[in-house]
Design a protein around this nucleic acid. Structure first.
Length: 156
DNA sequence: GCCAACGTTGGC
DNA sequence: GCCAACGTTGGC
């Protein structure tokens, strides 16, 4: 089974890579995703051990902060059943959940954070989904080439 | 806070 | 199935 590579966005004011690191077992359920494409990646394609770039969005300096891995494969996102949750979805039920999530485990925080504006300068990353105009998808596939370049040449 | 780009909803 | 209206994302 070949390992796949992903990028997951998070707003550091809400949940940062440091928050992930300080969780019990350094693991967190990636709940609250309410986009079908992103859901399908989690439900159908993300496998245990796949590697994830953790991206900080909607903050002063957006960019890639470090690495996590898939710790638990697809299971229903319970927040869609919870009427008190802001992620509650009336069209979901326990019998027929609409939303799924994976759990991710902290692996590494880069010593040097990789800001978006520096990623944009990299010719080798010009095709990266993250850097395409209008790209808003919160969970994206990353190629092995991109992943290796980012983790081995840009980050330490 | 602005706004472009994208996704979803719902009337027809 | 089309598409206008609306809501959200996310960089700047």
């Amino acid at each position: 089974m070949t390992k796949k590579y992903w990028l997951m966005k998070t707003e550091p004011d809400t949940f940062s890579i440091d928050d992930l690191k300080s969780r019990p077992n350094k693991t967190e359920s990636w709940d609250g995703v309410r986009n079908y494409q992103a859901r399908n990646f989690m439900r159908d394609e993300m496998k245990k051990g796949d590697l994830i770039l953790i991206y900080h969005s909607s903050c002063k300096i957006p960019g890639i902060a470090g690495i996590a891995e898939v710790a638990k494969e697809s299971h229903p996102d319970h927040t869609c059943f919870d009427k008190t949750s802001k992620y509650y979805d009336p069209k979901s039920s326990e019998e027929n959940p609409r939303w799924f999530m994976v759990s991710v485990k902290f692996k590494k925080k880069f010593k040097n954070f990789l800001p978006l504006n520096e990623l944009k300068e990299q010719k080798k990353l010009k095709d990266m989904l993250l850097l395409q105009k209008g790209s808003r998808l919160s969970i994206q596939p990353v190629t092995k080439k991109e992943y290796d370049f980012i983790t081995q040449e840009l980050a330490k």
